[in-house]
Design a protein around this nucleic acid. Structure first.
Lengths: 344, 344
DNA sequence: CGTGTTTATGAAAATATTTTCAAGCATTTT
DNA sequence: AAAATGCTTGAAAATATTTTCATAAACACG
């Protein structure tokens, strides 16, 4: 494979000049530039990333650390990041912390020692810790958290307005005539768990509905948890008449539990989910859902990262908040309607 | 950040010796080794991957090129690869060709110029082309294709027995009393499309059922295609009594179309899908499915790649075929049973 | 005890690039 | 015309590692 020296010889200039042409780092004569570019094409030269990264202490790779690669929401997010990375001619190292703080730390170390140019992270914990953060800061490797906020200062975040998403979902259920609305949410140690619960509470309060702690359950983001929590809720004595699920995998488990209890949606119980899923387009289910712009989230996070990379050190901390949207489908039909149906 | 020279000074040996300790590349005295290891720990030294890769012309990164990152099947596969990569202390560059040959080529170039140690690829086309392949061969970068075969010689493959998966699925439908069984499959330019269609045909032939080309449809692997093809099939005059779907996204569209036609599964039409999906565990759907060991597939592919890396050049081409398993659920209930139900 | 052999270690080359510093050349100024 | 300025270019240093080659020490064997 051709190297810079061969390009230099081929076009009759020095290595330095070729480098300047490659990186646009200084003025070079127009015809010299053209000659060099011709040689690059002729020899099919591609700069050696290792040598580059050795010299500059920075690679053309960005790290993407996801908390659960199984979740389709993050898939869309990854796609968004990937799209921008490709456009900017960066590659992506993908890591999956599996919601495991230890693994997150391990991968942070990997990214650091790989000299990634920057990192986009869905944090598992509420803070990275000063030690880790300082390492990255010291080498000026920008970090952008996405989907979830982190308490450490100076870390950018690109988020969806979880509070608003949940609040609108619940307000919609209330407006549709449901009044004993339960909620299952993710872990309260994570902003996407906490904020959605908070939105649920706000909506109830705004509607003047007495808050009942028994109707709130939270656990990890997976289907088994969704099933377990929903089963608990379905045992309650004054039965609930609607369920809000704060995550797509939780929704999956919830639907399963509801089905196991021989209840129908929305006839017996109204339902609103969070996050798109493959099956939410399945018309037989027709689940009212708070949709999140996952792809956009990834794209914006990547763009933010590239702002840092193009203008290192000069960026004030920034928090971008995108809007969710409530997609109303059959699972939250106004209560009167199916009550009429039952009577008929 | 500490470099090898500082470690050398700290432990009072030469750079070469530290390198030998790091790579186990030659014998070094036991107490010297211990001293060096202590220094490494004390200085928290981590080798610079760029310098390494510059010198050895090979990184500790493996490329993973997936054909559709949206598909949950590939998610599991990625997880399998990731797990093994982590164990072997390799990182993963993730690329998504989106079933687009051009993008595939683009990413192959990226992987090559990133000097990945090896690549695991879900190929979009039936061959990579000699030019590309030679580049990789020349630098001894092993390639393992996964899930799909490729016609080029010398390329390892880790596959699932698609023919058998489909044949068993259809045989099961036949045994359950269905006789007018239609099939929707992926593109015939890809082994996962072609082999599953072939399995369908074989099963019919073995059962002595007349083959009807009108019952076979194929298209790209996505829900919209599944919907369209199924709608065509549902219009047929002697109506079909069962549907085999050769991919999880196709299944999604198929179910949608079936629902839109107000047909019920399995009462009006029997159904078998392919690949797990999040919602196939949803008991209300209860879809009989050909399950693929996606995680295992990724793991095995990674292991195979590491065999190449540990013993370069010494590996004969190998094709590993894993077995699918038919998980029988409600959507393919024996026909007599629900016919009885209808009469009752 | 001397010679040949093995073993452990170090010095230095090599890897491909960016970047600093110096210098050449042309143009402008005095 | 000499000096100064500005622009373009090249030489060489620097980056962190692996690896080859040389060497010194230890060891074996006659």
């Amino acid at each position: 494979m051709a190297n810079i020296q061969q390009v230099a010889k081929h076009s009759g200039v020095s290595i330095s000049t070729v480098s300047r042409v490659l990186n646009n780092t200084a003025k070079v004569n127009e015809d010299v530039r053209r000659r060099v570019e011709a040689s690059i094409l002729a020899l099919n030269y591609q700069p050696n990333p290792a040598a580059r990264s050795l010299r500059t202490n920075r690679s053309r790779i960005i790290g993407l650390l996801i908390s659960d690669i199984q979740n389709p929401f993050f898939m869309r997010l990854i796609q968004g990041v990937e799209e921008e990375a490709l456009r900017h001619e960066y590659s992506l190292i993908l890591c999956n912390s599996n919601e495991n703080p230890q693994r997150e730390q391990q991968y942070l170390d990997v990214l650091y020692s790989e000299r990634v140019a920057g990192a986009i992270i869905v944090p598992v914990r509420e803070r990275f810790g000063e030690a880790t953060l300082n390492k990255f800061r010291e080498r000026q490797i920008p970090i952008v958290t996405v989907d979830r906020r982190v308490k450490d200062k100076d870390v950018d975040a690109v988020l969806v307005d979880n509070l608003r998403g949940a609040r609108e979902a619940i307000a919609h259920l209330i407006a549709s005539g449901y009044c004993r609305i339960a909620a299952i949410t993710g872990p309260l140690t994570v902003t996407t768990g906490r904020d959605r619960l908070e939105g649920y509470r706000q909506a109830l309060q705004e509607a003047g509905i007495q808050h009942d702690p028994a109707l709130e359950r939270s656990g990890t983001f997976d289907a088994a948890t969704g099933r377990k929590l929903t089963e608990e809720l379905l045992e309650l004595d004054p039965p609930i008449d609607a369920l809000f699920s704060g995550n797509n995998l939780l929704t999956l488990g919830a639907l399963d539990a509801i089905h196991a209890h021989n209840l129908r949606v929305p006839d017996d119980i109204g339902m609103v989910g969070y996050d798109e899923t493959y099956w939410s387009s399945l018309s037989s289910l027709s689940l009212t859902t708070v949709m999140q712009p996952a792809y956009e989230l990834g794209r914006v996070a990547a763009l933010r990262l590239f702002q840092h990379l193009q203008n290192p050190g000069k960026q004030a901390r920034q928090e971008v908040v995108l809007a969710p949207s409530l997609e109303i489908r059959g699972s939250s039909l106004p209560k009167e309607i199916h009550q009429l149906k039952v009577k008929a």
